[in-house]
């Protein structure tokens, strides 16, 4: 069953801004869905419409099968986690977490028990008496999560909850949020512009661009089989190598570059014709240095520790980026290299 359904939902702001442009989305019960996209693509607006914090200018939003367009926010039973935590600074941690229970006819003793349980879930027992400013950023975000979960929401909404944390903590919290979500089985919609977060946490990744959904699918599917250049580019370091179709054999296509070098594509996403100009898409980490058919020179090196990012100028002048594991020292600028690209890692869109 779908937990949340969006049907042709749109949001126009005054001044002609189309923040969300007729999107359709089904969030299955218990799923972890990520809205992923660049800044300004409408992720937050979409989430806020589900929460009731923005009113859609068109379309229908259903939660558990019920249309909620007209339901006021405080009757929607949703848990929301904000980027800046939004813990009430004048209330103790106990009162913060208990806040939602006060409006739900829960007895005093049950409130205490459920607050304790929620704090245990986020692994912060015993902080009831403290105030938000007496906790670290990561701890505050855990409390915000506890506050949202304690009301047993129909859907958990998270708007970039990790972006205010430092890198190490972010990775830790990422795993923790996912684990808690799975344990409780709550449906979650998570907004982020970080592809790493999206790929690591989600059951379903929804890539958005300019108020529309570009592609949706399991993380591996969206990553391995991008259906548009935008998705390929946004999800990781895609190279676009332009050439001309020289041979077509079913889905197998050979593309010849300007310098005469050839790239084979195992699985073209669309039918192409002989002589057609196309872009071959290949991810940086799929390009191997050494022992291939493409000749080039290293133009720049980014040393990243265990790997290095190489900007390589091909013989015909095109530039590609390769991400390679370092074995016996990184290569140097000016060094001549040959590149190998396996046919199954190349795509034509």
């Amino acid at each position: 069953m779908s937990s949340v359904e969006l049907k042709k939902v749109e949001k126009h702001f005054s001044g002609g801004v189309v923040a969300v442009d007729a999107i359709d989305l089904d969030v299955p019960d218990g799923a972890f869905v990520t809205l992923l996209g660049p800044s300004g693509c409408g992720k937050t607006t979409t989430l806020r419409m589900v929460a009731g914090l923005e009113t859609p200018t068109g379309g229908e939003i259903r939660i558990k099968g019920q249309r909620v367009n007209e339901t006021p926010i405080h009757q929607r039973n949703l848990g929301m986690v904000f980027q800046n935590y939004a813990l009430f600074p004048h209330k103790s941690i106990f009162d913060n977490v208990a806040f939602g229970l006060k409006y739900r006819k829960v007895s005093k003793s049950d409130i205490a028990a459920r607050v304790k349980q929620a704090l245990d879930i986020v692994r912060l027992p015993g902080v009831e008496e403290r105030f938000p400013t007496q906790l670290s950023g990561g701890q505050q975000q855990r409390i915000a999560l506890a506050r949202a979960l304690v009301i047993e929401p129909d859907v958990l909404l998270l708007d970039e909850p990790l972006s205010a944390l430092d890198a190490n903590l972010r990775e830790e919290m990422r795993g923790e949020i996912k684990a808690i979500q799975q344990r409780i089985g709550v449906t979650a919609i998570f907004v982020t512009h970080d592809q790493g977060e999206a790929l690591a946490m989600s059951d379903l990744v929804v890539v958005m661009n300019k108020g529309r959904i570009e592609q949706r699918g399991a993380p591996a599917e969206v990553y391995e089989h991008p259906r548009s250049e935008f998705v390929a580019n946004f999800l990781g370091n895609a190279n676009f190598v332009s050439g001309t179709v020289a041979a077509v054999n079913g889905k197998r296509v050979s593309v010849v570059l300007a310098d005469g070098a050839r790239i084979d594509v195992a699985d073209s996403a669309r039918a192409v014709e002989m002589g057609e100009a196309v872009n071959v898409i290949v991810r940086a980490e799929k390009i191997e240095l050494g022992g291939g058919g493409l000749a080039g020179t290293i133009a720049a090196v980014d040393y990243l520790g265990s790997t290095a990012r190489y900007d390589v100028t091909l013989a015909g002048g095109q530039k590609v980026t390769a991400l390679a594991t370092i074995r016996d020292g990184a290569r140097r600028v000016g060094e001549a290299v040959s590149l190998a690209i396996a046919a199954e890692h190349c795509r034509i869109l």
Partner: peptide, 12 residues
């Protein structure tokens, strides 16, 4: 967001 958080938690 403080007020918004309160609304989502069920306060009118």
């Amino acid at each position: 967001s403080y007020e918004e958080a309160a609304w989502t938690l069920g306060a009118n």
